[in-house]
């Protein structure tokens, strides 16, 4: 059942307060909403990353089950659990009422880089699971080093800016959505903590499908992005309004944008106040880099508008 307003978001808290996550973590905010949509009959299969430190013995903030695996293999852990649950139910050793949804939870370093093979395998095997990737565009838990998800011109701890390289990351962000979409999973979507209604509705839509249900969340990261902890939702929203982070879904590979901005705000509005992009503005304005970012976004949306004319009412959030 789709919801229309933030007032319809389920009240139940599956992820409780008091976690050791950083103040203002955009990933945690989105995860809270994801779990509201999924309910408490879940097992989270975690790979090494920021969220690993949510469950530290003997504490857990979750009302659901949890298994920490290792960095590269959470989808394989999900495979083992899902297969085992199916075996137990089939052989009458577990009541079907006791079944749980299997949810992989990782950061972008895992999803884009080290865990790509195990994820590809799990999607290809049509494993019935959810994958939530909290993408803060760097290896956040180790102190914000460059990852395959890091966008062009971002400063990270391993793409420091200096006279030999004033720009930061030289590479564009890897397109994980398209890599995953090429597997034609039943459900695939991008989500944002600034758009909880869109997020909840995507999870509810995904529920009808058996097989991989994959979500990539753009997670504003106050310490890594060098922004104020109170501004995560603001930057998440700016990422959408500038067209940097498109909200979209793909059902069995068929792509559709769930929000097509009427007029894009200039990318500068998103970049300017983030410490990780400050070098593009001070001490000298790096016009070429800024232009390149704007052009990448414009090119993306030009293609979208050609293929997908905005349906009436689609822009309401």
């Amino acid at each position: 059942m789709t919801i229309k307003s933030i007032k319809n978001i389920p009240d139940e808290e599956i992820l409780c307060s008091g976690t050791p996550a950083c103040a203002g973590c955009g990933g945690l905010l989105a995860l809270r909403h994801c779990l509201k949509a999924l309910g408490n009959k879940t097992v989270i299969v975690n790979a090494a990353g920021c969220f690993t430190l949510l469950s530290v013995y003997p504490f857990t903030p979750f009302a659901n089950s949890w298994l920490y695996t290792a960095m590269a293999c959470a989808p394989a852990g999900a495979q083992g659990i899902r297969d085992a649950l199916d075996i137990l139910i089939r052989k009458g050793r577990l009541n079907a009422q006791e079944d749980v949804k299997v949810v992989v939870l990782t950061g972008d370093g895992v999803a884009y880089d080290i865990g790509l093979a195990s994820t590809s395998g799990a999607i290809h095997r049509n494993l019935d699971f959810y994958y939530i990737c909290s993408d803060n565009e760097a290896y956040g838990n180790t102190g914000f080093q460059w990852s395959g998800a890091t966008p062009f011109a971002s400063k990270t701890a391993t793409t420091a800016t200096g006279c030999a390289n004033p720009t930061g990351s030289q590479l564009a962000k890897k397109d994980l959505f398209e890599i995953w979409r090429s597997h034609k999973p039943p459900y695939l979507a991008t989500i944002s903590p600034s758009h909880p209604v869109d997020l909840i509705n995507k999870f509810q839509k995904a529920e009808q499908f058996k097989g991989p249900k994959l979500f990539i969340n753009l997670s504003p990261c106050p310490p890594g992005w060098a922004v104020d902890a109170s501004s995560s939702v603001k930057f998440a929203k700016l990422a959408i309004d500038t067209g940097i982070w498109p909200l979209k879904e793909a059902i069995h590979g068929d792509l559709r944008h769930t929000f097509i901005p009427g007029r894009l705000k200039p990318v500068e509005e998103y970049l300017r106040e983030q410490g990780r992009f400050a070098h593009l503005f001070r001490p000298v304005r790096q016009e070429a880099a800024l232009q390149k970012i704007q052009e990448m976004v414009d090119r993306y949306w030009k293609e979208v508008r050609e293929k997908e004319p905005p349906p009436s009412g689609a822009n309401k959030q």
Partner: peptide
């Protein structure tokens, strides 16, 4: 089930064992 590597294979094996089979 054939996994995508031995790393995944041992993970799936351990996780299934941790689920009770």
């Amino acid at each position: 089930v054939t996994l995508d590597s031995e790393h995944s294979m041992i993970t799936a094996a351990g996780a299934a064992s941790a689920t009770g089979v």
